[in-house]
Design a protein around this nucleic acid. Structure first.
Length: 728
DNA sequence: CGACCGCAAATC
DNA sequence: GGATTTGCG
């Protein structure tokens, strides 16, 4: 459901840029002989000529539609050129289009805040640029207005005369106009320049809408395609919405739009005006109700996000009809392919953008052949993402096993093998989510910890000192080191392959932020899986420190725990009073080792840097929290208590009692906590204990803070990477 | 089962 | 917060 956001009081200038039949343009750039010819891009040519996903404007003249199959397109346009989407690993591969989209984004981002809305769409907030232009060189002062700007379509401007461009020129240059319109004129000129730049640099044409908010800009961009732009002045909004079919509005093309039509008899956006906000809220909820009330009036406060990269990466394939996968082996094979693709994509994201994905998610559609209620949900499953194709393949298969087991409501492995052909899988997809930007310098810190680990191999360790930061080789070094650090993140699963029902989930800290401890924890890959088995926590809130791993004994059914019991011989009975302590098991051994180890070689205080911390600390304190060795904070009482719990579980000084089964905590002893300090209170001598390159990095973080409050945001970005985000 | 496929983001 | 839904091209 859409959510209403307050609209800023000052007029904004927002543009929506939409590439014209983008996939076709990309293919035509690769094969120039196709330019100007009726062309469509098609995927899976095998069945009825494949499905069209982009149609050139030449082909549209013949009535070719995106919803057609290739064969149908040939029927209405026999000379159409059908270009197939590239296929890799047996599935469509959209990477060339993604990359082409990136080319465009990098150009469009130059004049203002830029949000990549899809593979071929971008929002721009050009408010500042327009204000600047208006005050420094307003349109009426320009000797000549860009031809492309003169070709703009201005909604509401009478376009019946012979010389349309002269009308537009007058409109753009009216210095007696409303301030908002004058800004819009500047926006149109800027957008025209940007579009020309895109054409010059990439060869792609695009269309654009310019208006005062995202909703209106999005409405405007397709009004005059291809290769044109449309402006919606404030005065034109009411008339536009009055006759706009409700389903044309973004987010109303689906169920909600249908509901409005059938329940309220609303046909156009303007028809919504007759309903009070209360009425709309009552029917569609507070958020959606207000959102609807607003859009009826052309009001939309959504901000342009300033994000040039996607928030997640996914790949999937459907297996319709007879193609459904009927064996684990077939599923495994496809998951391997999907994992490979996903791995490549997150790897290049890491190398190019220094971003790290945190979560791997599998989704599938399945049915049961012998049951009538075969529509049962096949729930998606996720686990911490470990880098490396093999690891992803491994985890993906385990996620699938876990999900199919749940789907079938059976614990029997034989059923999974589908001997009776009892099930089929009609879709598989994998995605990498929760992608976080890594602050520069993080990786060498990671590697420091990894090399510090006594049992880790040092063969591939290179110290940062040998590399000069800022050079390309350093960039490559960073990416490589980061990858090494991420490959060994805690395994998602209990090592015994027979137990699919237990899933170790990386429990994120309060806001799901990446925690360095999860990476540190598994520096030793040889022992990580074994250790994993030991990281068993109950599901009762207990020292749930940032990103500790715990075994998520599925809590929703008795059969699950029964199953576990049967297959592992360990009693994983559901939590019950008096037994909690048995299920409350040790923290990863490596963290313990790290703690003890550090006490002996003088690096003790670096650990203080990376203690997991409680929530609700102000961001200006967060870095201080990582760095300060002692002091007092101003968290609420409750927060501090919670933090102490965390401290005791992950970094306590006491050792852990060994036992035959899961290891138990010997006592509840706590150490003083160190969080919540002012950054000014950091003891400089602490930093001196670090290796030189890390000293430099940390000092780099601190230096700006002392001089400029504006740098707080930079520091808190780094801090947020390690710490729970501030609750907002 | 059932024929649009693949993908990404938002919502709950 | 993970899973599901919605929507888009």
């Amino acid at each position: 459901m859409p959510v209403a956001r307050p609209e800023p009081s000052d007029a904004r200038i927002i543009a929506h840029v939409d590439m014209d039949c983008f996939y076709v343009q990309v293919e035509q750039r690769n094969r120039p002989e196709l330019k100007g010819l009726p062309t469509a891009v098609v995927q899976y040519n095998s069945w009825k000529g494949g499905g069209l996903i982009a149609v050139s404007y030449e082909a549209r003249k013949y009535g070719v539609k995106r919803s057609m199959r290739g064969d149908e397109a040939k029927e209405v346009c026999s000379q159409i050129n059908l270009v197939q989407v590239p296929v890799a690993r047996g599935k469509a591969d959209l990477n060339i289009y993604r990359n082409a989209g990136s080319e465009v984004v990098s150009i469009l981002a130059k004049r203002g805040r830029c949000e990549r809305a899809s593979i071929d769409e971008v929002y721009l907030d050009l408010t500042d640029a327009a204000e600047t232009m208006l005050s420094e060189s307003p349109p009426e002062d320009l000797e000549a207005i860009d031809e492309e700007a003169l070709k703009s379509h201005v909604l509401g401007l009478s376009e019946n005369k012979n010389d349309k461009q002269e009308d537009v020129r007058k409109w753009l240059c009216r210095n007696d106009a409303d301030h908002r319109d004058r800004l819009l004129a500047c926006g149109a000129i800027i957008v025209a320049e940007l579009r020309m730049q895109v054409l010059k640099d990439t060869g792609f044409t695009c269309s654009a809408g310019v208006a005062h908010n995202k909703m209106l800009a999005k409405l405007a961009s397709p009004m005059n395609k291809p290769a044109q732009q449309t402006v919606i002045p404030f005065a034109a909004v009411k008339g536009l919405l009055a006759s706009l079919p409700i389903k044309k509005m973004k987010l109303l093309g689906g169920k909600l739009g249908t509901a409005l039509q059938s329940e309220l008899g609303v046909d156009t956006v303007g028809d919504l005006l007759q309903f009070s906000e209360d009425k709309l809220q009552e029917r569609y909820g507070i958020n959606t109700g207000t959102w609807l009330w607003n859009i009826a009036r052309g009001i939309n406060g959504d901000e342009v996000e300033g994000r040039l990269l996607p928030k997640s990466h996914g790949c999937g394939k459907t297996f319709p009809g007879r193609q459904a996968l009927k064996s684990i082996a077939a599923v495994e094979s496809w998951l391997n392919d999907l994992s490979e693709e996903l791995s490549e994509r997150i790897q290049s994201d890491l190398e190019q953008n220094k971003r790290v994905a945190q979560t791997l998610t599998l989704h599938a559609s399945a049915y049961k052949t012998n049951e009538s209620d075969s529509q049962r949900k096949f729930s998606s499953k996720s686990c911490p993402l470990r880098y490396g194709t093999m690891k992803i393949q491994e985890d993906a298969l385990k996620l699938f096993r876990s999900a199919i087991c749940e789907f079938l409501g059976s614990n029997r492995i034989e059923t999974h093998e589908n001997k009776h052909n009892a099930w089929g899988v009609s879709a598989l997809s994998l995605s990498a989510n929760k992608i976080l930007a890594t602050p520069s310098g993080t990786c060498s810190i990671l590697r420091f910890f990894q090399s510090a680990e006594p049992s880790s191999t040092s063969s591939n360790h290179v110290t940062g000192e040998e590399i000069i930061q800022g050079t390309e080789s350093f960039q490559a070094f960073e990416a490589e080191q980061m990858t090494l650090a991420l490959e060994d993140r805690t395994n998602s699963f209990e090592n015994s392959g027979s137990v699919q029902e237990i899933q170790i989930i990386e429990k994120p800290n309060s806001k799901g932020k990446c925690s360095i401890s999860s990476m540190l924890r598994s520096c030793d890959s040889s022992s990580s899986e074994k250790d994993c088995n030991e990281i068993i926590h109950d599901t009762i809130p207990f020292s749930s420190s940032a990103s500790e791993s715990y075994l998520d004994v599925n809590k929703n059914s008795d059969s699950k725990s029964t199953c576990l019991k049967a297959e592992t011989g360990i009693n994983y009975a559901k939590p019950s009073a008096g037994r909690d302590e048995q299920k409350r098991v040790a923290v990863n051994e490596k963290v313990e080792k790290l703690t003890n180890f550090s006490d002996t070689d003088g690096t003790c205080s670096i650990l203080n840097f990376f203690r997991p911390l409680g929530q609700s600390c102000s961001s200006s304190q967060q870095l201080g929290s990582m760095l300060a060795p002692s002091g007092a904070g101003n968290c609420s009482e409750q927060d501090c208590v919670a933090t102490k719990e965390e401290g005791s579980s992950l970094f306590q000084e006491t050792t852990w009692a060994e036992s035959a089964g899961p290891r138990l905590r010997r006592d509840g002893r706590r150490r003083e906590t160190w969080n919540n300090f002012n950054i000014e209170e950091i003891d400089p001598s602490v930093i001196d204990e670090l290796p030189q390159e890390i000293q430099d990095e940390v000092r780099g973080w601190l230096r700006p803070l002392k001089h400029s409050k504006a740098m707080n945001s930079k520091v808190s970005n780094i801090a947020r990477y390690f710490l729970p985000a501030k609750d907002t």
